[in-house]
Amino acid sequence: MSNYNFAYLDEQTKRMIRRAILKGLAIPGYQVPFASREMPMPYGWGTGGVQVSAAVLTPEDTFKVIDQGADDTTNAVSIRTFFERTAGVETTTATCDATVIQTRHRIPEEALQEGQILVYQVPIPEPLRFLEPRESETRKMHSLEEYGLMHVKLYEDISRHGHIATSYAYPVKVEGRYVMDPSPIPKFDNPKLGDMAAIQLFGAGREQRIYALPPYTQVVSLDFEDHPFEASKADHPCGMCGATDSYLDELIVDDAGGRMFVCSDTDYCEARQAAGHKGKDAA
């Protein structure tokens, strides 16, 4: 612990990242470039999220990390341990106790409160990237608000599959201005992005971009008038806790085609089980 500066990064780097975060909060949905540092983990493992977390953490914070909703996967455990060792902050798995939550690909089921910060790990921050490979052109499209191309992607979805088949990283428009990639969260989580009480920060380490949503920001998922946006999930109750309103993972349990559906948010599921809820697959 004493061998590291608080939260691993040096103070100048944290100031630089905080400036990018403040600018991002001032212009919701706008991608702010920042000088991303090498972190002691490979790109794609959450280097952007870790830098943002390091910049916002204070010694009094309680830190939680989730990976696809779970607190106990490799990525979540290693990042949580990383900040236990380098910042010495309290860690928790309970959503309501955490003040800073770093997440990969999910928003917790439990509604977040004012004073909490949700940090997303973002692999590709540019929603237009796969439609327009030139960075110079996508920046121009953002600055001139030329977002027709985003609808071309949704058009292609419908013409090929009969419905909008994009099921994660579903593009949103922020405050009627910037089109934003909400990181690869399932589109089930999209409605939670808007009007959220907590601060949402997005960090992309390899792509060197930070963007943000201040509390209570208007966020609208893009769609067509005759093919409206739909937040979808597997049509089952959770096998462990019986919840019908949470996002589910599908698990293959044997080699005879057996499967069960469980909440992807482990904290939510455990809390419900502790409160006495039981699903059909619970032991």
């Binding site: 030329e146 027709g148 609808h151 071309v152 008038e225 005759d226």
Partner: peptide, 10 residues
């Protein structure tokens, strides 16, 4: 081009 000028009805 239609979508670029605001058409939103598939």
């Amino acid at each position: 081009r239609l979508m670029a000028v605001g058409a939103r009805h598939y």
